[in-house]
Protein backbone atom coordinates (compact mmCIF):
# COMPACT_ATOMS: atom_id res chain seq x y z
CA UNK A 1 0.00 0.00 0.00
CA UNK A 2 1.03 3.57 -0.42
CA UNK A 3 1.64 5.51 2.70
CA UNK A 4 2.07 9.22 2.68
CA UNK A 5 4.57 10.79 4.97
CA UNK A 6 2.80 11.83 8.12
CA UNK A 7 3.55 15.34 9.22
CA UNK A 8 5.09 14.85 12.62
CA UNK A 9 4.02 17.39 15.16
CA UNK A 10 5.70 18.07 18.42
CA UNK A 11 3.42 17.14 21.30
CA UNK A 12 1.65 20.22 22.67
CA UNK A 13 3.22 21.67 25.82
CA UNK A 14 1.59 20.63 29.09
CA UNK A 15 -1.16 23.08 29.73
CA UNK A 16 -2.83 23.94 32.99
CA UNK A 17 -5.74 21.66 33.80
CA UNK A 18 -8.92 23.02 32.23
CA UNK A 19 -11.47 25.04 34.17
CA UNK A 20 -13.84 22.09 34.20
CA UNK A 21 -11.28 20.44 36.46
CA UNK A 22 -10.29 23.56 38.37
CA UNK A 23 -13.80 25.04 38.69
CA UNK A 24 -15.22 22.85 41.45
CA UNK A 25 -11.88 22.76 43.31
CA UNK A 26 -11.68 26.53 43.14
CA UNK A 27 -15.22 26.89 44.47
CA UNK A 28 -14.37 24.56 47.36
CA UNK A 29 -11.17 26.43 48.20
CA UNK A 30 -13.01 29.77 48.17
CA UNK A 31 -15.66 28.35 50.51
CA UNK A 32 -13.00 27.06 52.90
CA UNK A 33 -11.24 30.43 52.93
CA UNK A 34 -14.52 32.27 53.49
CA UNK A 35 -15.41 29.88 56.30
CA UNK A 36 -12.04 30.27 57.98
CA UNK A 37 -12.27 34.08 57.83
CA UNK A 38 -15.82 34.12 59.19
CA UNK A 39 -15.28 31.91 62.20
CA UNK A 40 -12.15 30.73 63.94
CA UNK A 41 -13.65 27.40 64.94
CA UNK A 42 -14.43 26.57 61.30
CA UNK A 43 -11.13 24.79 60.78
CA UNK A 44 -11.16 23.05 64.17
CA UNK A 45 -10.85 19.28 64.06
CA UNK A 46 -14.25 18.96 65.72
CA UNK A 47 -16.04 21.04 63.13
CA UNK A 48 -14.33 19.33 60.21
CA UNK A 49 -15.21 15.95 61.68
CA UNK A 50 -18.83 17.07 62.10
CA UNK A 51 -19.20 18.36 58.56
CA UNK A 52 -17.57 15.35 56.94
CA UNK A 53 -19.58 12.86 59.00
CA UNK A 54 -22.82 14.64 58.16
CA UNK A 55 -21.92 14.77 54.48
CA UNK A 56 -21.10 11.08 54.41
CA UNK A 57 -24.69 9.87 53.83
CA UNK A 58 -25.31 12.11 50.85
CA UNK A 59 -21.73 11.49 49.74
CA UNK A 60 -22.00 7.70 49.71
CA UNK A 61 -25.29 7.93 47.83
CA UNK A 62 -23.88 10.54 45.43
CA UNK A 63 -21.02 8.22 44.45
CA UNK A 64 -23.62 5.68 43.34
CA UNK A 65 -25.62 8.43 41.66
CA UNK A 66 -22.51 9.39 39.68
CA UNK A 67 -22.54 5.98 38.01
CA UNK A 68 -26.28 6.07 37.33
CA UNK A 69 -26.08 9.52 35.77
CA UNK A 70 -22.92 8.70 33.83
CA UNK A 71 -24.71 5.72 32.28
CA UNK A 72 -27.48 8.06 31.16
CA UNK A 73 -29.94 7.36 33.97
CA UNK A 74 -31.40 9.13 36.98
CA UNK A 75 -32.74 8.01 40.34
CA UNK A 76 -35.14 10.22 42.28
CA UNK A 77 -36.04 7.54 44.79
CA UNK A 78 -32.84 7.41 46.87
CA UNK A 79 -34.05 9.74 49.66
CA UNK A 80 -37.24 7.85 50.36
CA UNK A 81 -35.44 4.56 49.71
CA UNK A 82 -33.02 5.48 52.52
CA UNK A 83 -35.92 6.33 54.82
CA UNK A 84 -37.65 3.04 53.98
CA UNK A 85 -34.51 0.98 54.50
CA UNK A 86 -33.83 2.78 57.78
CA UNK A 87 -37.37 2.01 58.94
CA UNK A 88 -37.10 -1.61 57.85
CA UNK A 89 -33.75 -2.00 59.56
CA UNK A 90 -35.10 -0.61 62.84
CA UNK A 91 -38.19 -2.84 62.72
CA UNK A 92 -36.14 -5.97 62.03
CA UNK A 93 -33.58 -5.18 64.73
CA UNK A 94 -36.27 -4.42 67.30
CA UNK A 95 -38.09 -7.62 66.36
CA UNK A 96 -34.93 -9.70 66.63
CA UNK A 97 -33.93 -8.17 69.96
CA UNK A 98 -35.71 -10.74 72.19
CA UNK A 99 -34.01 -13.67 70.44
CA UNK A 100 -30.58 -12.23 69.65
CA UNK A 101 -30.12 -9.79 72.51
CA UNK A 102 -27.92 -6.71 72.36
CA UNK A 103 -24.66 -7.59 70.65
CA UNK A 104 -22.72 -7.73 67.44
CA UNK A 105 -24.94 -10.36 65.74
CA UNK A 106 -28.02 -8.16 65.79
CA UNK A 107 -26.06 -5.23 64.37
CA UNK A 108 -24.78 -7.47 61.59
CA UNK A 109 -28.32 -8.65 60.97
CA UNK A 110 -29.46 -5.04 60.64
CA UNK A 111 -26.62 -4.25 58.27
CA UNK A 112 -27.40 -7.31 56.15
CA UNK A 113 -31.05 -6.26 55.96
CA UNK A 114 -30.05 -2.76 54.84
CA UNK A 115 -27.67 -4.01 52.15
CA UNK A 116 -30.03 -6.65 50.79
CA UNK A 117 -33.01 -4.28 50.81
CA UNK A 118 -30.88 -1.65 49.05
CA UNK A 119 -29.76 -3.99 46.29
CA UNK A 120 -33.29 -5.31 45.79
CA UNK A 121 -34.74 -1.80 45.64
CA UNK A 122 -32.08 -0.77 43.13
CA UNK A 123 -32.61 -3.89 41.02
CA UNK A 124 -36.34 -3.21 40.99
CA UNK A 125 -35.81 0.33 39.68
CA UNK A 126 -33.30 -0.99 37.17
CA UNK A 127 -35.59 -3.78 36.02
CA UNK A 128 -38.43 -1.40 35.16
CA UNK A 129 -36.04 0.99 33.45
CA UNK A 130 -33.98 -1.47 31.41
CA UNK A 131 -36.12 -4.55 30.81
CA UNK A 132 -39.45 -2.78 30.49
CA UNK A 133 -37.92 0.33 28.96
CA UNK A 134 -39.80 2.91 31.04
CA UNK A 135 -38.29 6.37 31.52
CA UNK A 136 -35.98 6.47 34.55
CA UNK A 137 -37.56 9.74 35.65
CA UNK A 138 -41.03 8.19 35.79
CA UNK A 139 -39.99 4.89 37.36
CA UNK A 140 -38.01 6.50 40.15
CA UNK A 141 -40.58 9.25 40.69
CA UNK A 142 -43.02 6.40 41.27
CA UNK A 143 -40.75 4.45 43.61
CA UNK A 144 -39.94 7.67 45.46
CA UNK A 145 -43.62 8.00 46.37
CA UNK A 146 -43.94 4.30 47.14
CA UNK A 147 -41.01 4.14 49.58
CA UNK A 148 -42.04 7.39 51.26
CA UNK A 149 -45.53 6.03 51.83
CA UNK A 150 -44.21 2.67 53.00
CA UNK A 151 -42.06 4.23 55.70
CA UNK A 152 -44.95 6.44 56.82
CA UNK A 153 -47.12 3.31 56.97
CA UNK A 154 -44.50 1.28 58.83
CA UNK A 155 -44.17 4.10 61.36
CA UNK A 156 -47.93 4.58 61.51
CA UNK A 157 -47.39 8.23 60.67
CA UNK A 158 -45.00 8.69 63.56
CA UNK A 159 -41.41 7.76 64.21
CA UNK A 160 -39.77 4.34 64.33
CA UNK A 161 -37.19 4.27 67.10
CA UNK A 162 -34.49 1.74 67.72
CA UNK A 163 -34.64 0.13 71.15
CA UNK A 164 -32.73 2.37 73.56
CA UNK A 165 -30.13 -0.22 74.64
CA UNK A 166 -29.59 -1.28 71.06
CA UNK A 167 -29.10 2.29 70.03
CA UNK A 168 -26.53 2.85 72.76
CA UNK A 169 -24.66 -0.19 71.54
CA UNK A 170 -24.88 0.79 67.85
CA UNK A 171 -24.17 4.49 68.41
CA UNK A 172 -20.34 4.29 68.08
CA UNK A 173 -20.75 3.33 64.41
CA UNK A 174 -21.62 6.96 63.73
CA UNK A 175 -19.80 8.79 66.50
CA UNK A 176 -16.61 6.80 67.07
CA UNK A 177 -13.78 6.08 64.70
CA UNK A 178 -10.08 5.44 64.31
CA UNK A 179 -7.47 8.05 65.27
CA UNK A 180 -10.16 10.64 65.75
CA UNK A 181 -11.65 10.13 62.31
CA UNK A 182 -15.28 9.11 62.54
CA UNK A 183 -16.48 5.89 60.92
CA UNK A 184 -18.81 7.60 58.42
CA UNK A 185 -15.81 9.50 57.07
CA UNK A 186 -13.74 6.34 56.78
CA UNK A 187 -16.54 4.48 55.02
CA UNK A 188 -17.19 7.44 52.73
CA UNK A 189 -13.49 7.61 51.85
CA UNK A 190 -13.41 3.88 51.11
CA UNK A 191 -16.49 4.14 48.90
CA UNK A 192 -14.94 7.08 47.06
CA UNK A 193 -11.64 5.30 46.44
CA UNK A 194 -13.34 2.16 45.15
CA UNK A 195 -15.75 4.30 43.11
CA UNK A 196 -13.00 6.39 41.55
CA UNK A 197 -11.04 3.29 40.53
CA UNK A 198 -14.20 1.65 39.23
CA UNK A 199 -15.11 4.72 37.21
CA UNK A 200 -11.78 5.63 35.70
CA UNK A 201 -9.83 2.38 35.64
CA UNK A 202 -12.20 -0.50 35.00
CA UNK A 203 -14.28 -1.90 32.17
CA UNK A 204 -17.44 -1.18 34.13
CA UNK A 205 -16.65 2.55 34.31
CA UNK A 206 -15.85 2.71 30.59
CA UNK A 207 -19.01 0.80 29.79
CA UNK A 208 -21.06 3.24 31.88
CA UNK A 209 -19.56 6.22 30.06
CA UNK A 210 -20.05 4.56 26.67
CA UNK A 211 -23.66 3.67 27.47
CA UNK A 212 -24.46 7.19 28.63
CA UNK A 213 -22.59 8.77 25.75
CA UNK A 214 -24.32 6.80 23.00
CA UNK A 215 -26.18 3.60 23.81
CA UNK A 216 -26.21 2.56 20.14
CA UNK A 217 -22.45 2.74 19.88
CA UNK A 218 -22.12 0.81 23.12
CA UNK A 219 -24.49 -1.87 21.83
CA UNK A 220 -22.59 -2.18 18.57
CA UNK A 221 -19.36 -2.40 20.56
CA UNK A 222 -20.58 -5.55 22.32
CA UNK A 223 -21.31 -3.72 25.58
CA UNK A 224 -24.29 -5.22 27.35
CA UNK A 225 -26.13 -1.94 27.73
CA UNK A 226 -29.06 -3.21 29.78
CA UNK A 227 -26.86 -5.10 32.19
CA UNK A 228 -24.59 -2.08 32.64
CA UNK A 229 -27.55 0.16 33.44
CA UNK A 230 -29.08 -2.43 35.76
CA UNK A 231 -25.76 -2.71 37.57
CA UNK A 232 -25.60 1.05 38.15
CA UNK A 233 -29.03 1.05 39.80
CA UNK A 234 -28.20 -2.02 41.89
CA UNK A 235 -24.94 -0.41 42.96
CA UNK A 236 -26.74 2.81 43.90
CA UNK A 237 -29.24 0.76 45.92
CA UNK A 238 -26.40 -0.99 47.71
CA UNK A 239 -24.78 2.34 48.55
CA UNK A 240 -28.10 3.68 49.85
CA UNK A 241 -28.02 0.66 52.14
CA UNK A 242 -24.47 1.53 53.24
CA UNK A 243 -25.50 5.15 53.88
CA UNK A 244 -28.44 3.94 55.94
CA UNK A 245 -26.17 1.72 58.04
CA UNK A 246 -24.23 4.87 58.93
CA UNK A 247 -27.38 6.97 59.40
CA UNK A 248 -29.42 4.82 61.77
CA UNK A 249 -26.94 4.88 64.71
CA UNK A 250 -26.93 8.69 64.72
CA UNK A 251 -30.49 9.31 65.91
CA UNK A 252 -31.71 5.72 66.08
CA UNK A 253 -34.94 6.64 64.39
CA UNK A 254 -36.66 6.91 61.05
CA UNK A 255 -39.82 8.71 60.07
CA UNK A 256 -41.64 10.13 57.09
CA UNK A 257 -39.31 13.12 57.19
CA UNK A 258 -36.10 11.07 57.01
CA UNK A 259 -34.05 11.61 53.87
CA UNK A 260 -36.36 14.22 52.37
CA UNK A 261 -34.69 15.84 49.34
CA UNK A 262 -31.57 13.70 49.65
CA UNK A 263 -32.06 12.69 46.01
CA UNK A 264 -31.83 16.29 44.87
CA UNK A 265 -28.81 16.99 47.05
CA UNK A 266 -27.08 13.91 45.66
CA UNK A 267 -27.89 14.88 42.07
CA UNK A 268 -26.75 18.46 42.72
CA UNK A 269 -23.46 17.21 44.17
CA UNK A 270 -22.89 15.00 41.14
CA UNK A 271 -23.51 17.85 38.70
CA UNK A 272 -21.45 20.39 40.66
CA UNK A 273 -18.64 17.86 40.48
CA UNK A 274 -18.64 18.01 36.69
CA UNK A 275 -20.53 14.86 35.75
CA UNK A 276 -22.72 15.50 32.72
CA UNK A 277 -26.43 15.31 33.60
CA UNK A 278 -27.34 13.75 30.29
CA UNK A 279 -24.73 11.07 30.73
CA UNK A 280 -21.53 9.98 29.01
CA UNK A 281 -19.02 11.50 31.36
CA UNK A 282 -18.63 11.15 35.09
CA UNK A 283 -15.99 11.63 37.74
CA UNK A 284 -16.26 10.40 41.27
CA UNK A 285 -13.70 12.78 42.76
CA UNK A 286 -15.75 15.68 41.39
CA UNK A 287 -18.81 14.35 43.17
CA UNK A 288 -16.86 14.37 46.44
CA UNK A 289 -16.08 18.05 45.90
CA UNK A 290 -19.75 18.68 45.15
CA UNK A 291 -20.79 16.96 48.37
CA UNK A 292 -18.26 18.96 50.39
CA UNK A 293 -19.40 22.22 48.83
CA UNK A 294 -23.01 21.51 49.74
CA UNK A 295 -22.07 20.43 53.27
CA UNK A 296 -19.87 23.45 53.86
CA UNK A 297 -22.47 25.97 52.72
CA UNK A 298 -24.86 24.79 55.45
CA UNK A 299 -22.09 24.74 58.01
CA UNK A 300 -20.84 28.23 57.17
CA UNK A 301 -24.34 29.68 57.22
CA UNK A 302 -24.87 28.19 60.67
CA UNK A 303 -21.52 29.47 61.92
CA UNK A 304 -22.08 33.06 60.81
CA UNK A 305 -24.79 35.59 61.40
CA UNK A 306 -24.33 37.60 58.21
CA UNK A 307 -27.35 36.29 56.38
CA UNK A 308 -30.93 36.01 57.53
CA UNK A 309 -31.72 32.32 57.99
CA UNK A 310 -34.67 32.89 55.66
CA UNK A 311 -32.15 33.36 52.84
CA UNK A 312 -30.13 30.16 53.43
CA UNK A 313 -31.79 28.45 50.50
CA UNK A 314 -31.01 31.38 48.22
CA UNK A 315 -27.32 31.34 49.15
CA UNK A 316 -27.18 27.61 48.46
CA UNK A 317 -28.88 28.07 45.12
CA UNK A 318 -26.51 30.84 44.06
CA UNK A 319 -23.41 28.82 44.97
CA UNK A 320 -24.66 25.69 43.18
CA UNK A 321 -25.35 27.63 39.99
CA UNK A 322 -22.04 29.50 40.25
CA UNK A 323 -20.07 26.29 40.66
CA UNK A 324 -21.60 24.95 37.47
CA UNK A 325 -21.19 28.21 35.53
CA UNK A 326 -17.52 28.22 36.46
CA UNK A 327 -17.13 24.98 34.52
CA UNK A 328 -19.29 25.91 31.55
CA UNK A 329 -17.47 29.17 31.07
CA UNK A 330 -14.35 27.12 30.53
CA UNK A 331 -16.03 24.72 28.14
CA UNK A 332 -17.17 27.58 25.89
CA UNK A 333 -13.58 28.77 25.60
CA UNK A 334 -12.51 25.33 24.57
Amino acid sequence: MTTQTVTTRTPPPRRLPSMSVLGPILALVILVIVGALMNSSFLSAGNINNVLSRSAFIGIIAVGMTFVITAGGLDLSVGSMAAFIAGLMILVMNAALPSLGVGVPIILLGMAVALVAGILAGLLNGFFITTLGIEAFIVTLGSMGIYRSLVTWLADGGTLSLDFDLRTFYRPVYFDGILGIAWPIIVFAAVVIVGEILMSRTRFGRHCAATGSNAHVAHYSAVNVDRTRLATYAMLGLLVGVATIMYVPRLGSASASTGVLWELEAIAAVIIGGTVLKGGFGRVWGTVIGVLILGLIDNILNLTDLVSPYLNGAIQGVIIVLAVILQREAKAKG
Binding site: A209, H216, V217, Y220, G280, F281
Partner: peptide, 13 residues
Protein backbone atom coordinates in the same frame (compact mmCIF):
# COMPACT_ATOMS: atom_id res chain seq x y z
CA UNK B 1 -21.28 8.55 13.76
CA UNK B 2 -24.37 7.11 15.42
CA UNK B 3 -23.36 3.49 16.02
CA UNK B 4 -19.63 3.23 15.56
CA UNK B 5 -17.81 5.86 17.58
CA UNK B 6 -18.33 7.89 20.72
CA UNK B 7 -17.88 11.31 19.14
CA UNK B 8 -17.28 13.18 22.39
CA UNK B 9 -14.60 10.76 23.59
CA UNK B 10 -10.96 10.57 22.62
CA UNK B 11 -9.34 8.06 20.29
CA UNK B 12 -8.04 5.83 23.07
CA UNK B 13 -11.40 5.24 24.72
Amino acid sequence: KLRGLLLTKGMRD
